[in-house]
Amino acid sequence: MSAHGQETPDRLVYLAGSGSTALDQHIQSLLTDQLRSDVTLTPISDDQIPMIKNTPIVSIGPAAFSRVRQANRSIPILAMLVNKSFIEGFAARNPGQISGVFYDVPLLRQALTGKAILPQANTVAILATTASVELYEPLIDELPAHGMSARVFIVDNEDDLIPSLVRALRYGDFLLAAPDDAIYNPRTIKHILLTAYRRNKIVIGPSQAYVKAGSLASSYAPFAEMAALGANMIEQYFAAGEFPAPAYPQIYRIEVNDQVARSMNIPVPERAFLNQTIQQELTESGEAQDD
């Protein structure tokens, strides 16, 4: 097949970009590096999408996925840079046709990131809305096996935010921030971080961007790891005619805000030691696959 692969359309993959040229080119470059040489990855414009048949398309970010899905309901889509909560419903209803590489970090891994930094921590505080509270039930069930417990504090409007946060910080050894835009967004994050800081409590997560803003730490999957998984899923599509189920990458790194750690007088071990501690904890409990 590879001998004449370059002429056959079944080794072509389209790319629907996020609108950020730098990001789209970076993802395209990483995917190209990981894909076999007989696979061609070609950017596509929105007006071309309705004409595509039986050729897979990689969408970058939730807006690109939504545009592709609206324009062509039969196209096979691999969604990248999307959270599990965004894509898993689409994938469940369209198995084999829609898949994705999860961008968010498994909540258990994030909780264990907090415990690796604060080994004495055993209570985890979580903020959620009534719409998002069920997302945390699996984590609450998983934590006792790791010597921790969690409680969810409900925030249903902006007036609830600080009172609920104060109650959460009284309960938890740290606040686990999840990718819940209703709670963690540019309008609220400064208030959340300052309130936690004044009470000498750390915030873990939800992403590298929030670590730069003042969270103490977050696990994250490097773009290269997400691209490696995406390329593997594309190869599986060409081999089997359908995508595998969406999945998390297997390799994670940890971002730490050293300035916050110093100002809170928290000694943070080397990143490699933290990663090793988390991985060991997941492996010993049989959860290393980050299901």
Rank of each mutant, 00 (worst) to 15 (best):
R167N: 08
R167H: 03
R167S: 13
A168D: 03
A168K: 01
L169N: 09
L169I: 04
L169R: 01
R170L: 11
R170M: 05
R170V: 10
G172Q: 01
G172C: 10
G172S: 04
G172N: 04
G172V: 02
D173V: 09
D173F: 13
D173A: 03
F174L: 11
L175C: 01
L175N: 00
L175P: 09
L176T: 06
L176H: 08
A177Q: 04
A178L: 02
A178N: 00
A178Q: 00
P179K: 05
D180S: 05
D180M: 07
D180L: 06
D181Y: 04
D181S: 11
D181R: 03
A182M: 13
Y184W: 14
Y184D: 04
N185H: 14
N185P: 08
P186G: 12
R187D: 14
R187M: 12
R187A: 15
T188D: 14
T188H: 15
T188F: 15
I189A: 04
I189Q: 07
I189P: 02
I189L: 12
I189C: 06
I189G: 05
K190A: 15
K190N: 13
K190D: 11
K190L: 14
H191W: 15
H191C: 09
I192Y: 10
I192Q: 03
I192M: 05
L193V: 12
L194P: 03
L194K: 11
L194I: 14
T195N: 08
T195S: 14
T195E: 11
T195D: 07
A196K: 00
A196T: 05
A196C: 11
A196E: 02
Y197N: 12
Y197L: 06
R198H: 15
R198E: 13
R198F: 09
R199N: 07
R199H: 08
R199W: 10
N200Y: 05
K201H: 12
K201M: 09
V203C: 10
V203E: 09
V203I: 10
V203W: 09
I204H: 00
G205I: 06
G205S: 08
P206N: 09
P206H: 07
P206T: 00
P206V: 06
P206S: 09
S207C: 13
S207F: 03
Q208N: 14
Q208Y: 11
Q208I: 02
A209I: 10
A209N: 14
Y210M: 13
Y210V: 06
Y210W: 13
Y210R: 05
Y210L: 11
V211L: 06
K212L: 12
A213S: 15
A213L: 15
A213M: 12
A213W: 14
A213E: 12
G214C: 07
G214Q: 13
G214T: 05
S215N: 05
L216F: 07
L216E: 02
A217T: 03
A217F: 03
A217L: 12
A217I: 04
S218H: 04
S218V: 11
S218L: 06
S219M: 06
S219H: 03
S219N: 02
Y220D: 00
Y220M: 07
Y220I: 04
Y220K: 03
Y220L: 09
Y220E: 03
Y220F: 11
P222M: 08
P222L: 02
P222K: 01
